[in-house]
Simulated scan of single mutants.
Amino acid sequence: MAASSLPTATPLPPAAVSEDAPQPIPSPEPVVAAHLDQPATAEPPIHKSLLGQSLEDLTAWMVAQGQPAYRGKQLHQWLYEQGARSLQDITVFPKAWRQQVEGVAVGRSEIYHRTEASDGTVKYLLKLADGQIIEAVGMPSAKRLTVCVSSQVGCPMACDFCATGKGGFLRNLATHEIVDQVLTVQEDFGQRVSNIVFMGMGEPLLNTDNVVVAIRCLNQDVGISQRSMTLSTVGIPGRIRKLADEQLQVTLAVSLHASNQAQRQDLIPSAKAYPLTELLGECRDYVKLTGRRVTFEYILLAGLNDQPQNAAELAQHLRGFQSHVNLIPYNPISEVDYQRPSEASIREFVAQLESRHIAVSVRYSRGLEENAACGQLRASKVA
């Protein structure tokens, strides 16, 4: 990005964790996209922030502001290593100069609400510069800290089993709003983030450009390996091939959730315009172009898509495919009455796939009791 396009916006206030329970956030009005590749009111507010910029861009901007080139490296370190939320926080810069650039936005969010589950999973409501609320989730383990990040405010896909789409869609997230989620979780835990999953609010491939830039920033500037990142998509025509052209090293996770076209379009409205056979064809192209296998996510819904015939159909689709199936027992939401399958049904589904030589695992989502699990995210106050 050229130095001339860097920020002149009003700075964000320092983030603070609310001590008191926040007021409920009004549900956004649903926005229906006329075309999947052009969702209505998709773009973030037009302003640039320092966060999300490369070392080269930050250096060019500092020089344009009359500062020596080495200040660019200092700015980069304070943004990505020390988590500066304002230029006023960067005490190595001359005080007089900091006063001159007081209106420049770093691009950090405010923690609106924070809730911790018994398993250590933390769900964050983050307030953006324009007042919109998004969610991020931090999931610690013995050796890792994984962050589930959002790519949009809301989601236009309206999958029937997912809470996020029930609240409608407002806009895409800017690059700095994606990067900020990782830095916020990292700071709150006091631990470096090791893994990132783009499985929060929104459909990442409806915000491909900003998501790709964010991935490169998180890799090159924050220092997280691309091989430790997973991008989850329900499938947008042409976007998986576009992603393949970027030659990223991330894991692509495609949300199937059904073993046949009729069942899939009942669960995922966009599937009517994107047949399963076409989606799988694009996934095969992705494997050829990148040399990386595809993970297929499959939410198990009791009595609906967890039957032996479903496993047989799924195996038939994936025969000879460089892939892995990730089964996710359904996580309940209040808007629909789907049921979580029994452990016996889950084991039987796994056995059916394994007998047909399909690589498979079961993912039990964390943060379930705090509505922080897969499919449960929504921008509302945590009860």
Rank of each mutant, 00 (worst) to 15 (best):
H176P: 10
K166R: 15
R171Y: 04
V182D: 03
L170P: 09
F198W: 13
N195L: 03
V197N: 02
G168Q: 05
D160K: 15
E177Y: 04
T184V: 12
K166T: 15
V193R: 02
I196M: 01
S194V: 10
L173F: 12
T164P: 15
G165L: 05
V197H: 00
N172W: 10
L183D: 04
V185H: 03
L173H: 08
L183A: 07
E177I: 02
R171Q: 07
F198D: 09
F189M: 14
M199N: 01
R192I: 00
R171K: 07
R192W: 08
L170T: 15
L183W: 03
R192H: 09
E177D: 07
V197G: 08
I196L: 06
Q186V: 04
R171C: 00
F198C: 06
F161Y: 12
Q181S: 00
F161G: 12
E187D: 14
E177L: 10
V182R: 03
T164K: 04
I178D: 07
V179K: 07
G167W: 14
D188M: 13
G190D: 03
V182Y: 04
I196N: 03
R171L: 00
G165A: 11
V193T: 00
G167L: 15
T164Y: 09
F189Q: 15
N195Y: 07
K166W: 13
E187M: 14
V179T: 03
F169H: 14
A174F: 12
G200S: 10
K166G: 11
N172F: 05
C162L: 09
V179R: 06
Q181C: 02
D160G: 06
H176I: 08
F169I: 03
G165F: 10
G190F: 13
G167H: 15
S194H: 09
C162K: 13
E177N: 11
D188K: 12
L170Y: 13
A163Y: 09
L183T: 04
